[in-house]
């Protein structure tokens, strides 16, 4: 009896410490988000408060000035936001289609050069992406897709090379029994029919995962977007524009406006991600185990 109660006590103490650690972790993890949110409510108007960095967290006067500034049309923020949404949606749709096609071909078909193709892409993936930036810029410039045409240019570049990211999706297709394909083919269905009417409806989780990842990447893309849209304000995406607010000479005054812009841009992705979290976890775990 005595032993049992001491075990119980041990477990209770253990649980208590677990909660303490978890609460601490949660505080640390949430702090930056709370910080950004609180800062976004501090007015940049010198008559009210100050828009730079300060040594206190909670604003003295609650105000919506930053949001008003952003949405008022004094800057191109809405245009930037539209650009970001447009790029993200196009990339998500097109990239998902391409990845599905490549994954199906590599998972189900056996053709000459298949292993060569996979190895070749693996090796290509070891080159750092920025290496090709200058060359891509001039390639796009040749067809007029930089600066003013940066939006289609960005979509084109992100979609064009997306076939190389087939690993997770192919891994998923590999787990769908081949006997299903074969049964359908004996009944006279063509490969295309099997792919469109059997495999795709069965792959909802991986399609959602692929689309989600593809959607989130351009949402945060800074480097390439800033290079291709260089100097052309109306083709920026939100990341490029906000980074400039933060890191140009007068970022002091723009700090709270950056926070407000950040909150607005983070909300849709965060909500979307939280809704589809289950699929994301499935994809990530599956991808990690199969390598």
């Amino acid at each position: 009896m005595a032993k049992q109660s001491s075990m119980k006590r041990n477990r209770a103490i253990g649980n208590f410490f677990s909660y303490v650690v978890l609460v601490l972790i949660s505080l640390i993890w949430l702090f930056p988000f709370v910080g950004v949110l609180l800062n976004s409510f501090r007015s940049y108007d010198p008559a009210v408060e100050y828009g730079g960095m300060v040594d206190y967290l909670i604003p003295k006067h609650f105000s919506l000035d930053n949001y008003k500034f952003i949405l008022s049309g004094q800057t191109n923020y809405l245009k930037w936001y539209g650009n970001t949404v447009l790029i993200a949606i196009c990339v998500a749709v097109l990239q998902t289609i391409i990845i599905l096609c490549v994954s199906y071909a590599l998972s189900r078909m056996r053709f000459k050069g298949r292993t060569f193709l996979m190895r070749f892409w693996l090796i290509l993936g070891m080159f750092p992406g920025f290496l090709t930036m200058i060359c891509l810029y001039f390639l796009l410039k040749q067809i007029g897709l930089t600066q003013a045409g940066a939006i289609p240019g960005l979509i084109l570049v992100s979609v064009a090379s997306s076939g190389m990211g087939y690993y997770v999706c192919k891994g998923y297709f590999d787990t769908i029994p081949k006997a299903l394909d074969e049964a359908a083919r004996i009944d006279g269905a063509s490969r295309a029919r099997v792919f469109l009417t059997m495999i795709i409806p069965m792959s909802k989780p991986i399609i959602i995962y692929t689309a989600l990842v593809a959607f989130m990447a351009p949402w945060c893309d800074y480097i390439f977007a800033s290079y291709i849209a260089f100097g052309h304000d109306s083709s920026y995406n939100v990341a490029v524009a906000l980074y400039r607010w933060m890191n140009t000479g007068d970022y002091q005054g723009y700090f709270t406006r950056f926070c407000a812009g950040g909150v607005l841009v983070a909300i849709p992705v965060t909500v979307l991600f939280m809704l589809l979290q289950r699929y994301y976890v499935e994809g990530v775990t599956g991808g990690a185990v199969k390598g």
Partner: peptide
């Protein structure tokens, strides 16, 4: 709570 860091864009 932990997963929030994946969802919120890193540049923010």
């Amino acid at each position: 709570i932990l997963v929030m860091t994946i969802a919120v864009p890193q540049f923010v």
